[in-house]
């Protein structure tokens, strides 16, 4: 007796019968729903608590005058006074805005281009490329505070390496016309490695057949890069743009280590810190500066998000 030729058992139909309905009416099991709810609410609560509550708190505080003594009811509400003072009688403010913009422009022009160039060169797998990669990336691992200290050894007017070697007496960190550029060079030293690494990763991800196709079509190295490789790396470029914008708006650590963001090194982040951290406790004034910084950031964020959404719609 053999059962081989028997018709398929009804069990074969079971999966189809119990398969979940497709589309919008899909119902999650209780457990799945719990997981989804947890995954949405926990991060949401964290974002609300750690991002939105402090941000809104800053906005509220920026309309008051408070030195941190006593309860919140000791805050004296002064309306737009803090903002008015910032733009009229607070001398470091406008230089700070200008320096942040210079910072942004500089990071785009030099370290980004240089980082891209290094990435292209190192991507060619030449001898010792691993070593160079490590060498260029090394500064990224160091904290900016440490970088400020390292460069102090180069820049010090009386005891620094640069003035010693060239026999000059340039006051690199003290002269307000020069020190911003000196600091930007130190920043670039670190930022280049960062950009290089990102592009290097991007280049590794580019389909090799694209290069071959370009080569077959007779395109040279340069032409291939600008017409084929670069456009393909569009997502990487977006990431780099965002990183550069963020880095230049939050410029703080380096100038803080050097001279606490004074005398030619005013940046918004340092002004906020000067007013609320440490001995000075102008919470209202500092918050108003922070809000201004937030507004500037949101301009860039809006541009970026619009771009991303437009992209998605097109895709």
């Amino acid at each position: 007796m053999t059962h081989i030729d028997e018709a398929p058992t009804p069990t074969g139909a079971v999966p189809r019968a119990t398969a979940p309905p497709q589309g919008r009416e899909k119902k999650l099991s209780g457990r799945d729903r719990l997981v989804v709810i947890t995954m949405v609410t926990v991060p949401l609560a964290l974002v609300l608590w750690l991002v939105w509550v402090p941000a809104l708190g800053s906005v509220v505080l920026s309309f008051g005058k408070w030195n941190g003594f006593g309860d919140l009811d000791t805050i004296e509400w002064v309306g737009f006074q803090n903002y008015e003072d910032i733009v009229t009688i607070y001398p470091p403010f406008w230089p700070a805005i200008q320096h942040n913009l210079i910072w942004l422009g500089f990071l785009f022009l030099f370290p980004t281009v240089l980082g891209m160039l290094l990435a292209v060169v190192l991507d060619r797998e030449m001898r010792g490329s691993r070593f160079y990669q490590t060498a260029f990336y090394m500064p990224v691992v160091l904290s900016l505070a440490l970088i400020g200290f390292i460069w102090q050894l180069f820049y010090s007017r009386d005891q620094g390496l640069i003035n010693d070697v060239f026999g000059t007496q340039i006051d690199w960190y003290g002269d307000p016309d020069i020190n911003l550029w000196a600091v930007l060079v130190a920043t670039a030293w670190r930022h280049t490695g960062y950009i290089m690494l990102i592009y290097l990763a991007g280049l590794k991800g580019v389909d090799a057949s694209l290069r071959e196709a370009a080569a077959v079509d007779g395109a040279g190295e340069v032409k291939t890069f600008f017409h084929v490789i670069f456009p393909v790396m569009r997502p990487i470029n977006m990431v780099v743009i965002v990183i550069v914008v963020i880095e230049s708006l939050r410029a703080f650590d380096l100038v803080w280590v050097i001279n606490k963001g004074r005398n030619g090194l005013e940046v918004i982040g340092a002004l906020v810190a000067q007013n609320v951290i440490g001995e000075a406790t102008r919470y209202g004034f500092g918050s108003a500066l922070a809000v201004i910084m937030m507004l500037i950031s949101s301009v860039f964020i809006t541009i970026y998000l619009r771009n991303v959404f437009r992209e998605e719609r097109r895709g």
Partner: peptide, 22 residues
């Protein structure tokens, strides 16, 4: 010491600290 200060005071902690300090 200033290096320590910097580590203790990233920009984010400043903004966060602002509202939370209250």
């Amino acid at each position: 010491r200033s290096a320590l200060t910097t580590m203790a005071a990233s920009r984010r902690s400043v903004l966060g600290g602002l509202a939370l300090s209250g």
